[in-house]
């Protein structure tokens, strides 16, 4: 059968049309597949982040439990032993020669008991946070004032405490302790300003020092930057934000805001 010229032209047009439609669908398919891949990558990243946060949460829980255990052991065992020592020392019939030495030993033991109680209280975060975060911070700063010569200013602008948020208050308190520890270790500061603000739905902790400061981008490249990254992760764990502002020879300001409902 002979195909007419018109039929052939029609056939060529049809084939060309199909051959144009096919790449179009292929490109659409590739684009959709690619979008799916992007979504998958996003989900994977989110899962990784969640996993990391969960891991961090577990680490903090374990750390908290260990600290609590050490604190109660210090308080219950060593504390009791020291109390017994103190009582024993006070019951000794003293003669004039030994009186002075035994009295000094008794005083030292009493100081040791006092220090031990305070240390045990600091370590036992849950116990410390029982009243509220501001109380825990004040306690921590009192401890700091006794051992160092920093000028410490603390402004507590909180209005009320929410007992249900004790867990996140504890994480924020540990974050505060680490920040203070970093200032002592690295900042070479003389003044530390701490502000705790509360607005509806948000709790903000601001720690500012007048130390040597640093270049944030440089710091993040070094191992010291890991500490900042860790603090940031902890803030993220509480669905909060973590901001660091630092200038060399001016000081550093750390701002942590967490949802507080």
């Amino acid at each position: 059968m002979q195909i007419s010229s018109k039929d052939l032209i029609y056939l060529i047009t049809l084939i060309t049309f199909i051959f144009l439609i096919a790449p179009l669908f292929l490109i659409i398919y590739i684009s959709l597949y690619n979008q799916k891949k992007a979504k998958h990558a996003e989900e994977k990243a989110a899962l990784k982040k969640t996993f990391e946060l969960e891991l961090l949460k577990s680490q903090i829980e374990v750390q908290e439990n260990i600290l609590q255990m050490i604190a109660s052991n210090l308080h219950d065992n060593i504390g009791q032993l020291l109390s017994l020592t103190s009582m024993t020392l006070s019951s000794i019939q003293m003669d004039s020669k030994r009186e002075e030495k035994i009295k000094t030993a008794g005083e030292l033991t009493l100081r040791a008991i006092q220090e031990l109680r305070q240390l045990s209280k600091r370590m036992n975060g849950q116990e410390l946070i029982k009243k509220n975060l501001a109380h825990a911070i004040t306690y921590e700063l009192d401890w700091l004032r006794r051992g160092t010569e920093y000028e410490i200013n603390f402004r507590d602008n909180t209005t009320h405490s929410i007992p249900e948020n004790a867990d996140i208050e504890l994480i924020l308190f540990r974050l505060f302790q680490e920040t203070i520890s970093n200032i002592i270790k690295h900042a070479e500061a003389t003044v530390i300003d701490i502000t705790l603000d509360q607005v509806p739905g948000l709790l903000t902790l601001r720690v500012k020092d007048n130390g040597k400061g640093f270049v944030l981008a440089d710091k993040l490249k070094t191992s010291e930057g890991m500490g900042l990254s860790n603090l940031s992760k902890r803030a993220a764990m509480m669905n909060g934000t973590f901001n660091v502002t630092s200038s060399e020879e001016v000081g550093t300001e750390i701002l942590v805001s967490i949802p507080y409902i």
Binding site: I12, L20, A22, P23, I27, N34
Partner: peptide, 26 residues
Amino acid sequence: FRKLGSDPQFWVINGILFFYFGSTAC
């Protein structure tokens, strides 16, 4: 993952595919 909507290589190849696949019948 790459943003295909703004990927030059992807669009050059799209053009090539349209032209050479579409011209097959001719």
